[in-house]
Amino acid sequence: MSPPPAATIEPSLGGLPLATPSMLRETQLRRQAFFAVVMAAICIGFSAPLVRLADAGPAAIGFWRLFFALGPAIVWAYAEHRARVRLARLTGATALRPSARQILLAMLAGVFFGADLIVFHKGLALTSTANALLLGNLAVVFVFVFGWLILRERPTRGLLIALVLALTGTFIIIGSSALGGGHAGSRAVSVAGDLLCVGAALAYAGYMLVTRAVRRAGRGDAVPLGGGMVSLVASATGAVVCLAWAVASGEVLVPQSLQGLLAVIGLGLIAHATGQGLATFALGRLPAGVISVVLLLQIVVGTALAALLFGEVPSLIVLAGGLLVVAGVTTARPN
Score class of each variant (00 low, 15 high):
residue 251 E to W: 14
residue 213 A to K: 13
residue 25 R to F: 15
residue 271 A to S: 08
residue 258 L to N: 07
residue 140 V to P: 01
residue 313 V to Y: 12
residue 24 L to I: 15
residue 293 V to N: 10
residue 44 I to V: 14
residue 188 A to K: 04
residue 9 I to H: 14
residue 118 I to G: 00
residue 307 A to I: 11
residue 85 V to Q: 00
residue 155 P to W: 14
residue 131 N to Y: 12
residue 158 G to Q: 13
residue 278 L to W: 11
residue 278 L to G: 08
residue 242 C to L: 02
residue 226 G to E: 07
residue 87 L to K: 08
residue 240 V to W: 01
residue 63 F to P: 02
residue 74 I to S: 00
residue 163 L to H: 02
residue 55 D to W: 14
residue 34 F to Y: 09
residue 147 G to L: 02
residue 35 F to W: 11
residue 152 R to Y: 05
residue 195 L to E: 10
residue 27 T to M: 13
residue 2 S to E: 12
residue 292 S to P: 04
residue 218 G to P: 02
residue 9 I to P: 06
residue 323 L to C: 14
residue 37 V to H: 03
residue 270 I to R: 01
residue 16 L to P: 01
residue 320 A to E: 12
residue 207 Y to C: 00
residue 48 A to E: 13
residue 107 M to P: 04
residue 129 T to V: 08
residue 329 V to I: 15
residue 116 D to M: 05
residue 320 A to Q: 11
residue 229 M to C: 05
residue 261 L to G: 12
residue 291 I to M: 06
residue 279 A to P: 02
residue 271 A to Q: 04
residue 90 L to C: 09
residue 308 L to A: 12
residue 238 G to E: 03
residue 125 A to V: 11
residue 85 V to W: 00
residue 24 L to N: 15
residue 284 G to I: 10
residue 54 A to Q: 12
residue 108 L to C: 03
residue 283 L to M: 12
residue 22 S to G: 01
residue 142 F to V: 07
residue 89 R to P: 02
residue 306 A to V: 06
residue 28 Q to E: 14
residue 132 A to Q: 03
residue 114 G to P: 01
residue 280 T to K: 03
residue 168 T to I: 04
residue 140 V to L: 03
residue 278 L to E: 11
residue 71 G to A: 04
residue 291 I to S: 04
residue 278 L to I: 13
residue 111 V to N: 02
residue 108 L to A: 06
residue 64 W to Y: 15
residue 151 L to Y: 15
residue 283 L to I: 13
residue 166 A to P: 10
residue 36 A to F: 15
residue 217 A to F: 09
residue 84 R to C: 00
residue 301 V to S: 04
residue 222 A to I: 09
residue 125 A to F: 12
residue 265 I to V: 13
residue 78 Y to M: 00
residue 212 R to H: 08
residue 275 G to Q: 08
residue 121 H to D: 03
residue 222 A to W: 11
residue 124 L to A: 04
residue 307 A to C: 08
residue 123 G to Q: 07
residue 297 L to V: 08
residue 184 A to V: 05
residue 95 A to T: 14
residue 110 G to N: 06
residue 275 G to L: 06
residue 202 L to W: 06
residue 116 D to W: 09
residue 252 V to E: 03
residue 11 P to D: 15
residue 1 M to A: 05
residue 81 H to P: 00
residue 63 F to M: 06
residue 295 L to D: 05
residue 199 G to M: 11
residue 176 S to L: 01
residue 7 A to W: 15
residue 225 L to N: 03
residue 268 G to A: 03
residue 243 L to E: 11
residue 269 L to W: 11
residue 304 A to N: 09
residue 247 V to T: 07
residue 87 L to D: 11
residue 178 A to I: 09
residue 148 W to P: 01
residue 123 G to C: 03
residue 177 S to N: 13
residue 63 F to E: 02
residue 169 G to Y: 08
residue 234 A to S: 13
residue 279 A to C: 05
residue 239 A to T: 06
residue 289 G to N: 09
residue 114 G to S: 02
residue 68 F to C: 00
residue 268 G to Q: 02
residue 203 A to R: 06
